[in-house]
């Protein structure tokens, strides 16, 4: 029974330090991911983006955080206070806890670049992110008003339809790698990154990841044009901030997963090994974040019924077909 804890328990303080550092890094990268997004979207819309606070607007996240903290925290009269207060934390905690199993670079002798190197890594990530949506759907429901409720119903339906296709698209990679351990998956991409043999799976993953994180053009959960602010209409101040943080951290998470599963993780491009693995990893994640932002700046929001139809009638069958073909090829080639 001690099998689970014993390898780590001797170094519990190391785990604690890793957690602390990781928390700091993730929060900082959230802050600058937000700035990055505002800058890029600004440029694409022929604006300079935030540039007033600090040189190049670099202090903008700090000021934003301060603003959110100082704002009044409102709870509507019709809200269910318990769930209403709980929901942002569900979102945030699940978003953070994913990082416990993500490896950031090559494991060296006796250490891993992760808080915990779990063997079922990718499954654990899927499990944790599947809980994250409760923050949105419960929060929307508990707000006690109609727009958040609609947002929350949408999020539930959207999540169910897209999570399936997403998992299907990942299984192809798992078949090729023959393991569910994230380190193992990255190591098996040393020669060929999986986005080449699994190109269809890669595209499906990118699409479903956008839907999973409720980002434009699949941001029907928020849909400010029709639902005011969707699930977070009633939230204000720090609680809104928590949802906000969770959204960006989820973006980072799916970017990390895409990097690990399809883009070869910390494997260097073209033998450029003078950049350490962590550098490559971060570069690839940043690239993914850029794609995310790019999509948001380009495409208008898709209609709800089209979103569902697309998920069930296009992505899921294609993902299944991809899975079957991959399994067949792997079986034939032994």
């Amino acid at each position: 029974m001690n099998a689970w804890l014993s390898p780590q328990s001797s170094l519990w303080w190391a785990v604690l330090i890793k957690c602390g550092v990781l928390l700091f890094v993730v929060i900082t990268s959230f802050a600058y991911a937000m700035l990055f997004e505002r800058k890029i979207i600004g440029w694409m819309q022929l604006r300079p983006g935030p540039n007033r606070v600090g040189p190049w607007g670099l202090l903008q996240p700090l000021v934003d955080a301060l603003k959110l903290i100082l704002k009044e925290d409102l709870t509507p009269k019709t809200a269910d206070p318990l769930i209403y207060r709980l929901a942002p934390f569900i979102s945030l905690v699940t978003a953070f806890s994913v990082y416990a199993v993500i490896p950031f670079s090559e494991p060296g002798p006796g250490n891993v670049w992760a808080v915990g190197d779990v063997n079922a890594g990718i499954l654990v990530i899927l499990a944790i992110t599947s809980i994250g949506v409760y923050g949105i759907s419960l929060g929307g429901w508990a707000s006690g008003s109609k727009y958040p409720l609609l947002g929350s119903v949408r999020s539930t339906a959207q999540m169910i339809s897209y999570e399936l296709a997403m998992a299907m698209s990942l299984i192809g990679v798992l078949i090729l790698a023959g393991t569910t351990s994230l380190v193992g998956i990255v190591n098996s991409q040393a020669k060929l990154w999986f986005f080449i043999p699994q190109f269809v799976g890669f595209i499906i993953y990118v699409v479903t990841a956008v839907a999973e994180t409720n980002r434009a053009p699949f941001d029907l959960v928020e849909a400010d044009a029709e639902l005011v602010g969707g699930f977070n209409t009633e939230y204000s101040g720090l609680r809104f901030g928590l949802f906000f943080i969770a959204e960006y951290i989820n973006m980072l998470t799916v970017s990390c997963i895409a990097t690990l599963l399809f883009l070869g993780g910390w494997n260097a491009v073209g033998g450029l090994t003078m950049i350490p693995g962590i550098g490559w990893f971060l570069l690839k994640v940043a690239f993914f974040m850029f794609v995310y932002i790019w999509l948001r700046a380009t495409f208008p929001r898709i209609r709800y019924d089209r979103l569902m139809a697309f998920g069930w009638k296009v992505l899921l069958p294609v993902a299944t077909l991809n899975l079957v073909i991959t399994a067949f090829v792997v079986a034939v080639r032994g």
Partner: peptide, 27 residues
């Protein structure tokens, strides 16, 4: 028309180009 991937790529190309354009903003 619904799944016109070419159109999607055109859109992406336009936004990418605009990223490097001169910004008309007056500070």
């Amino acid at each position: 028309k619904l799944y016109n991937v070419g159109a999607l790529l055109t859109g992406l190309a336009i936004t990418f180009k605009y990223m490097f354009k001169r910004k008309p903003t007056i500070q």
